[in-house]
């Protein structure tokens, strides 16, 4: 198993304790394309943050590739995020004063890769995502779909084990959303990238192969969606 969560609990304590995750057990294998669905407040984002080592958990065990992720120092956590995980965010989270190619280069910068090498690699990834002509542009000169593709390039450049997408289509129109989801599907299919998408949109979830339903901090149904029939609107459509 690439990802294994065993009885993971998480409580937020902002004045009043809030038990967000109440014992999550989840296993995701290498090469899977999974979506985590749930209503807002269900704990799906918290779960994704824990998987992405952005947040820590209180009790339980979490393994990536057999390695226990617990009680890491900030430095170690940063290093693991850098080498094992690629993030795609709803709001893209590109650095506004850096050009597309500089944004894509950034994870390699933190790995200490030389200037020319990382530029070369970043250009390769931008080209792969059809954005070579936009390499020198700043994020505010690009459309939402382009920005998200830059973010995907940035997430992929370190060749991570896991690609985590938090509402990747949340800020996009339906057509672009579809393109982005197809791109993710293609990456999963052709390159075997393990992808976990958090969403509350059934159309988005329907693009994935497995749908994990989370409700009130517990894993509910795990749906096999290799047929892509989960959405009532049919396969390959995202309604907004």
């Amino acid at each position: 198993m690439l990802i294994e969560l065993k009885d993971v609990n998480k409580t937020y304590d902002n004045g009043q304790p809030l038990h967000v995750l109440k014992g999550i057990n989840l296993s995701i294998d290498s090469g899977e394309f999974v979506s985590i669905m749930g209503a807002s407040g269900s704990g799906k984002s918290t779960l994704l943050n824990i998987i992405g080592i952005l947040d820590n958990y209180d009790t339980g065990e979490y393994y990536i590739d057999g390695r226990l992720i617990k009680g890491l120092s900030e430095k170690q956590a940063a290093d693991y995020r850098n080498r094992m995980i690629g993030f795609i965010f709803q709001s893209f989270n590109l650095i506004s004063f850096k050009t597309a190619v500089e944004n894509v280069e950034l994870p390699l910068f933190y790995q200490g890769v030389s200037r020319s090498k990382r530029h070369e690699l970043a250009m390769q990834y931008l080209e792969k995502l059809g954005l070579a002509d936009w390499a020198g542009h700043y994020p505010n000169e690009m459309s939402g779909g382009q920005k998200q593709r830059v973010a995907i390039a940035r997430a992929l450049i370190t060749n991570p084990k896991i690609l985590l997408a938090d509402e990747p289509t949340g800020a996009l129109d339906s057509k672009t959303s579809e393109e982005v989801m197809q791109l993710l599907a293609k990456l999963n299919r052709e390159e075997g990238v393990t992808i976990i998408v958090v969403t509350h949109e059934s159309g988005v979830a329907n693009c994935t192969d497995k749908i994990v339903h989370i409700k009130d901090g517990l894993i509910g149904r795990i749906e096999d969606n290799r047929e892509h029939r989960a959405s009532m609107f049919g396969a390959n459509t995202i309604m907004k």
Partner: peptide
Amino acid sequence: THEFGIRKAIGASPWA
């Protein structure tokens, strides 16, 4: 702060 959050998410250590 937000920008540093992005940097940290993609692997910047506190020292960086």
